[in-house]
């Protein structure tokens, strides 16, 4: 973890509720896809944990949804604003487990951390399939960016306006019929989606993988025990420090 000052370089609306912010500064502590940063906002006691979408030499990109008061206020931050940020938090995805043909499954606001992971996997010459789930066409973002990396992209929308009508698990089942077996999966999204993937892909499908979780956090660096979860393998993990990514075998719903 490193506490740094980052400068807002851009803060752009991607869909009516989803925004992308690029921040400039020392991002050297971000070493793994699936990690997050914790932003201090004026007038709020606790910081806002947001997953890292992409990182380059001196920039970090985050994509966030205006869900509550804090994230709503973030949408008004202008270029040039300097923020106090804790960087490189959490234990992210382990790309070394991917095998040759991993599938990345993201839903809604859970999609961003998969982007940096996809970038790593493509760089490692893996055949990457990405399944992205949205409610409807107007909520779609980043599908083109994944394709530009060289990923095979499939879209599912709940209302059927684009791609397969239904959930990411419906898209997965359809792909499974037409493509070779996947070697591993990585997923992030709403809890209901993660549970469906655990059932359909891990338990029934027999594919191993990793899940990234969201939890209300106090500190974001393992001190307050606010975000602990029990593990199937015994003991507990703190979502903020030992997670947010857990291996399928560890998860105790």
């Amino acid at each position: 973890m490193k506490q740094v000052k980052l400068t807002v370089k851009s803060n752009k609306m991607l869909t009516p509720t989803t925004y992308r912010m690029r921040l400039e500064g020392d991002v050297s502590a971000i070493t793994q896809p699936g990690q997050f940063i914790n932003l201090k906002l004026d007038g709020h006691f606790l910081r806002r944990p947001i997953s890292v979408c992409d990182v380059e030499s001196s920039h970090v990109t985050i994509i966030y949804k205006a869900l509550g008061q804090g994230t709503e206020e973030m949408t008004h931050l202008e270029s040039g604003t300097v923020l106090d940020v804790l960087t490189g938090l959490g234990t992210g995805f382990d790309s070394s487990r991917s095998g040759d043909a991993p599938v990345l499954i993201g839903g809604g606001v859970g999609i961003p951390p998969l982007y940096l992971l996809a970038k790593h996997l493509i760089r490692e010459k893996k055949k990457v399939t990405v399944i992205l789930g949205y409610n409807s066409e107007d909520e779609i973002y980043y599908a083109g960016e994944f394709a530009a990396l060289g990923c095979e992209v499939k879209i599912a929308t709940a209302d059927g306006s684009v791609g397969i009508k239904g959930f990411v698990t419906d898209a997965y089942k359809e792909l499974k019929r037409t493509l070779n077996d996947y070697t591993y999966f990585y997923t992030c999204g709403p809890t209901a989606m993660l549970k469906a993937i655990y059932r359909d892909v891990y338990t029934r499908g027999g594919v191993d993988g990793e899940f990234s979780f969201e939890e209300r956090m106090g500190c974001g660096y393992g001190a307050c025990m606010g975000c602990s979860v029990l593990l199937k393998t015994g003991g507990y993990k703190r979502i903020c420090k030992d997670g947010p990514v857990l291996r399928a075998e560890e998860i105790y719903w």
Partner: peptide
């Protein structure tokens, strides 16, 4: 002790509520 179920953190004006429960 594992403590209470999550969520066990909520923000408050100028503060924080916790219900960790002695983990």
């Amino acid at each position: 002790r594992f403590g209470n179920k999550t969520p066990r953190i909520a923000e408050a004006p100028a503060g924080v509520l916790n219900s960790v429960g002695l983990q």
